[in-house]
Amino acid sequence: MTLNSDPTVTISLDLFTVSLLLASLLFSFCLVLAKRKYVFLRRVSGPELDTKKLLILSAATACFLRIMSFVGVIAMDIANVRAHYSLKPVSSHPEEGRATNPTDKNQSFYDSAMTVLFDLPNAIVISTYVLLTLVWAESALMSRMHTESSVRWRKKWLVWYTIFNSGLYATQIILYFLIFAGGDSVAVVRNIVNVAMSGLNLSAVFLVFLLYLYLNVSFSGYPFRSQNAQESLRKISNVMLFWSLTRIVWGISMLVIYIRDVDLLRPSEGGWAPIFFLLLLILCEIAPVIILMDYSFVTVFEFDSAATRAMPSLQHSSSRLEIDQVVGDEASMSTAREPLLSELS
């Protein structure tokens, strides 16, 4: 924004700002979609918090943080504050002893704040992906007829999810502390953050792959409850596969950015880095959220009732009453089902 002697105010938008603005609008759409789905689930299944509601809340939080971080960067970019962003050592001017230029004095803190602001939502996106894996694991457990305790398996998964989340956020906090405490080494710590987040993405995919193999081997001898349960699990597995591929793409892209020393917060004039970053966000974060919240919503979030309905008829009378109640709830849910985007006209 340029202020001259005349009252005219000129605001210029570069390609980087436009890319962040478009991404913010798309994330806003995802946030509205997640809010609608969460309200719908509360209406049909009550206010109790389960892994599926937690998955929606986690995805919504990731979208909200992306919007807030991009809005902050856009505001500084329009105000020409970005012109002061430079990951170079802070220089001191030995005037009157050890006097320091005010701009240089605040340079390190500003660079650190911008780096943290831009990177903040990455951890919760990884956490959302792992939580989706738990929802898939619960569906895989319910899709087969077995004698295992579902409660025991769920408790075990939640314990491991808590451990993973604790390590994930602890790593993020330590890295951000090093960014602010690093002084002139902001550029070095920023590179460490890029490599660490890339490694966490690829590590999460590897752990999910191990869980996938373990469950398939452990329950391969148990038959599916029904053909519908098998087909529904296949659809949920496809959603998880798409999320896994996008996490791999994101992790590799962050490694390429590190190797080529690309600073997304200060793209070169005429470069295609902002367009590449926008396409990366659409592929790796926006599209997965839309697929989860809309086109696979019925399959993922009504799987429990569908699997229960498909249980064998050789049950004692008390179990039969419980099944009838669940089927009735599922029928009311299907009549109250919120239309998908493809069904709206």
Rank of each mutant, 00 (worst) to 15 (best):
R144W: 02
I248V: 15
V326I: 12
A60N: 06
E48P: 00
V205R: 00
P102Q: 07
R260C: 08
F206V: 11
R42H: 13
R309K: 10
M142T: 08
S108T: 14
L21I: 14
Q325R: 14
R42K: 13
R337L: 14
F29T: 07
R154V: 08
A170W: 06
T51F: 13
I74F: 08
I275Q: 08
T128F: 13
L120E: 01
N165C: 12
D111R: 05
L200P: 01
P274I: 08
I282G: 06
Q107P: 00
M145I: 13
R98W: 15
D50R: 08
L341P: 02
A140E: 04
S24K: 03
R66V: 12
M68A: 14
L134F: 09
Y212D: 10
I163F: 11
L241I: 03
D111Q: 10
M114I: 14
L20Y: 09
V189M: 08
D14P: 00
A79R: 07
I174D: 04
L141M: 10
S69Q: 09
Q325E: 14
L25F: 15
L211Q: 08
S19V: 04
I236G: 03
K37I: 09
G251A: 09
S253M: 06
I257M: 12
L279P: 00
S332W: 06
S91W: 05
S232K: 10
L215I: 09
D6V: 09
E302Y: 12
F16R: 03
S92P: 01
R98Q: 11
Y169P: 04
W160S: 03
S12F: 11
A137E: 09
S108D: 10
K235H: 06
K88D: 13
M145Y: 03
L233F: 06
V239C: 03
R144A: 05
V18Q: 09
S203Q: 01
F303C: 03
V298L: 03
Q107G: 12
F29Y: 15
D329F: 04
L233Q: 01
Q172N: 06
L264I: 15
L132T: 04
V262D: 03
A170R: 00
N165T: 12
R190T: 13
S268Y: 03
V249W: 08
L3W: 08
S58H: 04
L279D: 02
S24L: 12
I74L: 07
I67G: 06
V298K: 12
L175F: 09
S332E: 09
K88N: 11
S318Q: 05
A23L: 13
D50L: 05
F303K: 00
A60V: 05
A140S: 08
L25P: 02
A123G: 07
Q227N: 14
S28Q: 05
Y222I: 04
L321D: 06
H146V: 02
Q230D: 04
D104V: 02
S45E: 13
N201E: 07
L158A: 11
I78W: 04
R266M: 14
G46A: 05
V208M: 10
L57Y: 07
V39Y: 04
A83G: 15
Q107N: 11
P339A: 12
L3C: 07
I291C: 12
I323H: 06
I248F: 07
H146D: 05
